[in-house]
Computed example of a mutant assay.
Amino acid sequence: MLAARTIRISSLVLPRAVASSPRPAVALFSTQSARLQPHPQATYSDKGAMTGHLDTYSEVIVDHNNVKQLFHMYKKATSKEEKGTLVNTIIREIAVHSEAEEVSVYNDLESRGLAGESKELRDEHEQLEKVLYSVDWTKVDSSEFEPKFEHAIQLFIKHSDREEEDILKRLKEKLTPEENDKLAQDFLTKRKAVPERPHPIAPQSGGIIQKVAGALTKPHDKILETLRGQHFLSDDQLAYKHGQSTNVQPIKIDTSLLTHA
């Protein structure tokens, strides 16, 4: 169980998670994560908020927000161990998110007259995964690491901003509350089945071949993580949770933290 404390630094409210018992493959260190402000251009009217249905937009934004939050934590980290755990977690969160989107949300885009947008988003995922794959095999204390990692974050910001401010809002307008709930459920189900590492040369069409490849790859990813002795934050240590709100607002990452921009 995690005991949550809240401290205030300057104008930011920072939640601190303290682990009271060890968990497998989790680095037990104290870390701070800034609560960032909602992105003003990405707000929207949630027509399903009062129905008890899940919201696809919100579930996707949960992942986006966690990656942004983790990056802020990384920039505040001081030890190699802490940075390594945060980078591992960021790579995992982006990989899982991207694969789950491709086999659920992007397929729905195509069925609702947004095939061109789906193709462009898949291409952006492929580019991001190539950079993440290189980041994953570069040591955190290497001189090559920071530029590669920040390039990946830049690609992620550009991609997520486009989804948040345009495409996902257009998709939402085409969904009934029931369809929205079904798609959100499908996205969350797929998150549990897809690989947890970047595989840029794997199929990304969203079809059965990608689903089968993902199912076959996932166990090998776990073995590799164990062999490499990698540590990750657990889901309950992430700031944003799936299935808890139908009105999750995007946060805006502080691009001034990108020293290699």
Rank of each mutant, 00 (worst) to 15 (best):
S205I: 05
S11D: 15
T246Y: 11
D186V: 03
H97C: 11
S205C: 13
G113P: 07
H220V: 14
K130V: 00
E146F: 00
Q185F: 05
I208W: 14
I91W: 00
V26L: 12
D123P: 02
I7S: 05
L114V: 05
Y240A: 07
V26Q: 14
T31K: 06
H64E: 05
A49G: 03
P38Y: 13
Q41E: 13
L132A: 06
T138L: 05
T43V: 08
A49P: 03
V18P: 00
D161I: 01
S134M: 12
A27L: 15
E146K: 08
T189H: 08
K252Q: 13
V140P: 04
A152P: 12
E81M: 12
T31M: 14
L183Q: 13
H159E: 07
E165P: 00
A239C: 06
I223Q: 12
P38F: 12
V60W: 00
L128I: 02
H125D: 04
P22Q: 04
S142E: 02
S143L: 04
A215N: 02
L171V: 08
H260M: 05
K222A: 15
A49R: 15
E178T: 09
I209G: 01
P198R: 06
G229Y: 01
I209K: 15
P38K: 12
A42N: 01
S111R: 15
P24V: 07
K174Q: 11
H242E: 09
N65I: 05
A27I: 13
S21Q: 15
T78M: 11
L188N: 08
S118D: 10
P203I: 11
G116Y: 01
P200S: 10
D123L: 08
T259K: 14
V140K: 01
G214W: 03
A42Q: 01
K76A: 11
D141M: 02
D221F: 02
G48F: 03
E120K: 15
G84Q: 11
Q41H: 08
L54H: 13
V87L: 02
L36M: 11
K211A: 14
F232E: 02
A4T: 14
L216K: 04
K158A: 15
E124K: 08
K192D: 09
E150Y: 06
R170S: 07
S245R: 14
L2E: 09
F156E: 00
Y44F: 15
S160Y: 09
K252M: 06
H72P: 05
L36I: 03
I9T: 13
P147D: 10
I201Q: 14
Q237T: 09
Q127H: 08
L238N: 03
I94E: 00
F156G: 01
E93F: 01
R197F: 13
H97I: 12
A17K: 12
Q32E: 13
T255R: 08
A77I: 10
R112G: 03
Q154F: 10
R23D: 11
I223S: 09
G229A: 04
Q154P: 01
A261I: 03
K211C: 09
V13L: 14
A27P: 00
L183C: 06
A19N: 12
S160G: 05
V103Q: 11
G113A: 05
